[in-house]
Design a protein around this nucleic acid. Structure first.
Lengths: 186, 186
DNA sequence: GTTTTTATTGATTGACGAGTCAATCAAAGA
DNA sequence: TCTTTGATTGACTCGTCAATCAATAAAAAC
């Protein structure tokens, strides 16, 4: 029973965050959405913070799946880089719930050590993924380019998430274009 | 008396946001920090949202000053572009309070129309500033480059604000480097 | 068939915070 | 001097929400 309830709560949490557009989300609403009493949510997670953290973790895990799925189809370093970029702009990332969760994640990472830890993991993973395939293409400029690409991915994501209507395809095009310019440069 | 109180409240709000690391900030705490009763804060601003909005506006205004100050010393389009970039990574932007305010600003922009409006203004201003000096250098590629630079600035800012210790100088270097690569490319 | 364990909830508590209001205080006019 | 007006506050209301707990139902173990 426990794993079922936990999963239901995590999904309900993400949905609720999406509906509210912020982390100002009540345990009661989450529980109701998951079809149980607020008390039961506390029973399984102990506290509201733990529920939110589990939701963040779930989103990162899902993102990890996308990266691996895209990577599986790529062979050359260049193709693998594009795969990583494509995973970052997967349509699922622009679901309102996911956008809201990411933004709030950023906020939470300032104070909550658990959130900060998760964010560091995401940063490190993205960086090392990029680095692995940049090395053979850019040599000792790889680290610098990786940092730039990572920042660009975050920036483009935020702009698509907030301002312009989300468009994964053009987002990928923008980042890959910069990638190519940086690679061709001496 | 009114303008004095309003300014004190806005400053106290920013300080309090910085101290708390989030927009979960109480009117009471703000008022106490500004040396007055909570009731008085309501008297002058009407509601908590208005106080927060005024704080955001204040941050954007300050940023605008920095841009103009940097621009005043630049003559060539290339120098002006660098000035805009430099303003975005001014040390003041990395004050914990300002970082917290920006991040929360992003979150709020999702739901609150006032916040969304302010964010649009910031986006448009940055874009048109960049565009103005990119046109003579990049012709019809200017719009595309402006969009990329804007995203990169946001992305680099967030990474410096959250992860790596903030370093305005290297942030500026990273963005200007990309700018140059994009300009030199055919 | 009885006991133990697990799942579940309704009701409640305790804290906190936004916004209101009536009452004071002080200065500025008349 | 009397009065009006703006500044200011303490006390209060009302709502919300996380967390607790005692009680019940159901299943598992013995």
């Amino acid at each position: 029973m426990e794993p079922i309830r936990r999963e239901a709560l995590v999904k309900a949490t993400i949905a609720e965050i999406g509906a509210m557009g912020s982390l100002d989300v009540t345990v009661s609403k989450i529980a109701k959405r998951a079809g149980m009493s607020p008390a039961l949510a506390h029973h399984y997670f102990g506290s509201k913070d733990r529920i939110l953290l589990a939701a963040m973790q779930h989103i990162l895990t899902t993102y990890g799946h996308w990266v691996r799925r895209e990577l599986a189809q790529a062979t050359t370093p260049r193709a693998r880089l594009e795969a990583i970029i494509r995973a970052s702009f997967e349509a699922g990332n622009f679901e309102p719930a996911v956008i809201a969760a990411w933004l709030n994640f950023y906020v939470h990472a300032q104070g909550d050590p658990g959130g900060a830890r998760l964010l560091r993991i995401y940063h490190r993973r993205l960086r090392s993924n990029l680095l692995h395939d940049l090395r053979p293409l850019a040599g000792d400029r790889a680290e610098d380019i990786a940092e730039t690409l990572a920042a660009l991915i975050d920036g483009v994501y935020i702009r698509h998430a907030l301002g312009t209507p989300p468009d994964g395809v053009s987002a990928v095009a923008r980042v890959t274009d910069v990638l190519d310019r940086l690679l061709e440069a001496r």
